[in-house]
Design a protein around this nucleic acid. Structure first.
Length: 675
DNA sequence: GAGCACTGC
């Protein structure tokens, strides 16, 4: 710490070790090219700012890796990253985006015949493999941000390892943060049964190599608490005020776990900053989380007014997805909300969990982007030492059904023997296989069915919704189900909720409410948007609807419709014109929709108990209607629901629709044979 | 009567 005598010194003690600096990418140009030339797999280790994502592809292009019309593919875990990096590289390259340098993300393909360097999301590259299993148009594939261990980048690495055996010419670059570089290199070097002889010939270690690059970050002082904080939220607030009164200029970024905490902290800081001595600099506290409307998110990027210090209270969104300039101080609560999946109950949960060392390092790094910074960790150095080195990879804590389906469609029949970077628990695999079998996507030998399973894999929605869509023609409601599929895959972003205006949102929703449940309500919302809202800018505003989300629903619907038409299924839109709300002459249509939903979502059925809670079919799990649901506080008997998530101690079901018990037996006789 | 961290096709 610097020489000044602030109180912070009493509570925070400096870290013992600092990482040694490495070399920057420009100096490594020749060695990088040499390594890619000599080794099938190169692991590039470098932090954000090292220029690996922007420079490496250009080096390779100039060195002739696209000479024979081949393409260098660079995958990113997020859409924004794919587009922004592409734009920057095109600028450096001196071309228009979409010419020599382009990008491709869902709904946006900005590439052309002349594209040589192509940025794309990793999920999209997996999809390209459905059409071109050996990814033959690529000479080099670089998987960027692989250390994040998203499901799709993990699966992509598994596929690339497999492809490499058939395409020795393919060059693979894995870009990672320091901690896991060895894991990647071991993964590609490691011999597995069928590749054992090949690996013996090449010799272990000759396949993959590691190169380290320096990040262009400034030094960061890491400070720990001397003793554990009882309440990290309170400690975060007081630390912010301490920094504000004792430390020189510079904005503060505080990592918390969720919206509720963030709103509380913003409130507390604005109250306490009112008590600062008159004439002193003021604090401008701002919230940042994904659920925030875009215009409010933009505030964090604006410079604070004269005589204000900006303090951003953020979720994990600032750890990798969003970069804010001018941050000098980071306050790290040491916690994050993580998703887990219980294969026994099929329930996802969202729980507050201690961060990993890798996360903590990433958070600290956000302080040193423009000048030397400080990171205040709201835990002791001992506690830090006991943190896991990395997060549990997503593939080990998710519902695998959509990915198993994709692997099967890629011709990987024995998914249990697929070469995973980290294999998921057997229970997760079994659960996914069982669900896919019950939906008719797999036969009794666990082989992909045709056309059902193959079509389900091609549709860009989760398996139960895919089944619902493919069943819809026989219920005469394909147009409506298309809309429902698009609306449910948006997640919870349909409504705009302004602070302290919960009541307003509720009454806005009620206008579209359908007696039958949330799916029909979503259908009403979409149809109102299509008929009135698309051209009237006031429609969304007046009804507290999220215009961006609704526009996205239109895109998703169009894309799904194109898939279905390619399958030869005719989408008759003429019937969709009139409303399906109760009371009209279309209650038969509403029933067909509910029946069709049952045909896909029979595994997500529940029955309401006299006390108003729900119970799943086996009666083992208590479920609650989510407060956002139309079925919250309404009477029902049997229902199906889109998803179930546990937060705190309760499991909530979202997007709920009434059904008849008899339909479950009718559409899923095998699943409910004991009933 | 109570609430979704973050991505992606």
């Amino acid at each position: 710490m610097s020489g000044s005598d602030f109180d912070l010194g009493a509570a925070f003690i400096p870290a013992l070790h600092k990482p040694a600096p490495l070399l920057p990418i420009a100096k490594h140009r020749e060695s990088l090219l040499y390594l890619v030339e000599s080794y099938p797999v190169t692991i590039v280790v470098g932090q954000t700012g090292s220029g690996k994502s922007t420079q490496a592809p250009q080096f390779l292009e100039h060195a002739g890796w696209c000479a024979d019309g081949k393409v260098i593919g660079v995958t990113q875990p997020r859409r924004v990253a794919a587009t922004t990096v592409a734009i920057r590289v095109a600028e450096e390259f001196g071309c228009e985006v979409g010419k020599e340098v382009g990008y491709s993300i869902r709904f946006e393909d900005v590439t052309s015949e002349s594209t040589r360097i192509k940025f794309l999301t990793d999920g999209l590259l997996i999809r390209e493999a459905l059409v071109d299993p050996l990814l033959s148009r690529y000479s080099v594939i670089m998987v960027d941000e692989a250390h994040e261990r998203s499901i799709s980048s993990d699966i992509l690495l598994g596929l690339l390892k497999k492809i490499r055996r058939k395409r020795p010419d393919l060059r693979i670059i894995v870009s990672s943060a320091t901690l896991q570089a060895e894991d990647f290199s071991n993964f590609f070097s490691e011999a597995r049964e069928d590749a054992a002889s090949e690996a013996r010939q090449e010799g272990k270690g000759d396949i993959a190599t590691i190169v380290s690059l320096e990040g262009r970050t400034y030094p960061i002082d890491i400070l720990y608490l001397e003793s554990p904080a009882e309440d990290y939220l309170e400690k975060a607030v007081s630390t912010v005020l301490d920094i504000h009164t004792n430390e020189p200029k510079g904005d503060i970024l505080v990592f918390l776990t969720g919206r509720e905490e963030i709103d509380q902290a913003v409130q507390a800081v604005s109250e306490r900053s009112a008590q600062l001595p008159p004439g002193s600099q003021s604090i401008l506290p701002l919230p940042l989380y994904a659920g925030l409307p875009t215009d409010q998110q933009m505030y964090v990027f604006e410079e604070a007014p004269e005589n204000y210090r900006k303090v951003i209270f953020s979720t994990n969104i600032s750890e990798a997805s969003v970069t804010i300039d001018g941050i000098v101080y980071v306050v790290d609560s040491g916690f994050v909300k993580l998703r887990a999946y219980n294969p026994r109950s099929g329930i996802e949960s969202l729980t507050v969990t201690p961060v990993s060392k890798a996360s903590a390092a990433q958070r600290a790094g956000r302080a040193g982007r423009t000048k030397p910074g400080k990171c205040f960790r709201l835990y002791t150095e001992e506690a830090y030492q006991s943190l896991p080195s990395a997060n549990v990879p997503e593939i080990q804590r998710s519902n695998l059904a959509p990915f198993i389906l994709q692997l099967k469609a890629l011709g990987i029949d024995n998914v249990l023997r697929f070469d995973f970077l980290t294999p998921p628990p057997a229970e997760l695999m079994t659960r996914a296989l069982e669900l896919l079998y019950s939906l008719g996507a797999l036969d009794e030998y666990a082989k992909l069915t045709k056309p059902m399973g193959l079509r389900m894999a091609e549709l860009a929605v989760e398996p139960m919704m895919a089944k619902t869509l493919l069943s819809a023609p026989s219920f005469g409601c394909l147009s409506e189900i298309l809309t429902i599929a698009a609306m449910t895959s948006l997640g919870g972003n349909i409504w705009i909720q302004h602070e302290g205006e919960k009541k307003k949102t509720e009454s806005a929703k009620r206008k579209f409410a359908a007696e039958e449940g949330d799916h029909l309500t979503l259908l009403n919302v979409y149809q109102a948007f299509i008929t009135k809202g698309r051209n009237e800018s006031r429609f969304c505003h007046d009804n507290l609807l999220n215009f961006k989300a609704m526009t996205r629903a239109v895109s998703i619907r169009n894309q799904l419709k194109r898939y279905l038409e390619r399958f030869g299924l005719n989408v008759d839109e003429s019937l969709a014109a009139h409303s399906t709300s109760t009371g009209g002459g279309s209650s038969n249509k509403a029933e067909q929709i509910r029946r069709c939903l049952t045909a896909g979502y029979f595994a997500h059925a529940a029955r309401m108990q006299p006390d108003g809670t729900f119970r799943n079919v086996s009666g083992t799990t208590v479920l609650h209607a989510h407060p956002s649901s139309i079925m919250f506080n309404r009477k029902a008997d049997w229902v199906v629901f889109h998803e179930v998530m546990e937060t705190g101690t309760k499991a909530f079901i979202r997007d709920v629709t009434r059904i008849e018990k008899a339909w479950l037996l009718e559409y899923a006789p095998e699943f409910y044979k004991t009933g």
